[in-house]
């Protein structure tokens, strides 16, 4: 499973760092942060018999972007979906371990999943605007959660959200047009606007640019950088360049294991684990 870590040769080439805060984990690098917003410990995810995530522990910090990278099929998206319990919607998926949001276990029986998802928003791989107008798409979250007292306030939320998502100038004249009529990049920014309209604390992004062209991708990346000021962001990406551009911390996954975590600059310049290095230098993936 984790042969490279155990092999003496690997250890010789990449000495395990002395400063690991939680020595009991197999993961290379510091998994903890100061004042974490989310702490995931020993998380396993099973799809029926298959163990898709194996004993993964990591913290998510406030006002910071955490990038999760790794070859396809490594389980990074599955892991991301644990944070807002989207795996609940898959019948045979089962999650074990603990994930705490400000000290509260989100898999606790008393935790209302609706409340949780209002705090932890998510943007998906493929833009998925509702078959409604642009306005209604953004207003939907505030409506169901009762965030706006009246129409004026709702208008204001919609406007601010669209502005923060950098979409306002493009759509302000046609808020009534269907959300599906926008281009792919605009649709994805609409989905981001929709997410921040609920005023979440964390935004999860599951390869948000994989279906977009380079220009639209650049806009989204800029947007992520701006949003970092207000939210904790966890982003799954298959592009190392993207991870390097937008994130402050990077986690490298391989076949369901969290191999290495660290400052993005450090991971990309000085990976400590053989697998990480192989991936970053493009030997596989």
């Amino acid at each position: 499973m984790n042969a490279a870590t155990d092999s003496p040769a690997a250890k010789a080439a990449h000495p395990v760092p002395e400063a690991s805060a939680t020595p009991e984990t197999k993961t290379v690098g510091r998994i903890t942060v100061d004042d974490p917003l989310i702490c995931a410990r020993n998380v396993d995810v099973f799809y029926g018999e298959k163990r898709a995530i194996k004993d993964v522990s990591i913290d998510i910090a406030r006002n910071q972007v955490l990038a999760m990278i790794g070859p396809s099929g490594c389980g990074k998206s599955t892991f991301l979906r644990c944070f807002n319990r989207m795996n609940d919607t898959i019948e045979q998926a089962r999650v074990a371990g603990s994930i705490k949001l400000e000290g509260q276990d989100i898999y606790d029986r008393r935790q209302d999943v609706v409340q949780l998802r209002a705090r932890i928003g998510m943007v998906f791989q493929k833009p998925n605007p509702f078959p409604k107008s642009i306005y209604e798409n953004v207003a939907y979250g505030p409506r169901i959660h009762g965030l706006a007292a009246d129409r004026i306030e709702l208008d204001e939320i919609v406007q601010t959200s669209l502005k923060r998502a950098g979409l306002w100038d493009e759509v302000k004249d046609r808020l009534g047009a269907p959300g599906t009529s926008l281009s792919g990049g605009q649709q994805q920014r609409l989905c981001i606007a929709r997410t921040i309209a609920v005023n979440p604390e964390v935004i999860l992004m599951d390869e948000p640019c994989s279906a977009l062209d380079p220009i639209a991708t650049a806009r989204i990346e800029d947007l992520i950088d701006e949003l970092r000021a207000s939210y904790a962001i966890a982003i799954v990406t298959h592009s190392m360049q993207q991870a390097a551009r937008v994130s402050q911390r990077t986690a490298y996954f391989h076949l369901g294991d969290l191999i290495e975590v660290g400052e993005t600059d450090r991971i990309f310049t000085n990976p400590r684990h053989k697998l990480t290095e192989d991936y970053i230098t493009g030997r596989f993936g």
Partner: peptide, 17 residues
């Protein structure tokens, strides 16, 4: 954004029941 995180949380909670 006009509302703070705490305010939002209170509102969400209010609508929950």
């Amino acid at each position: 954004m006009s509302k703070s995180v705490a305010e939002t949380r209170a509102l969400v909670e209010k609508s929950l029941r």
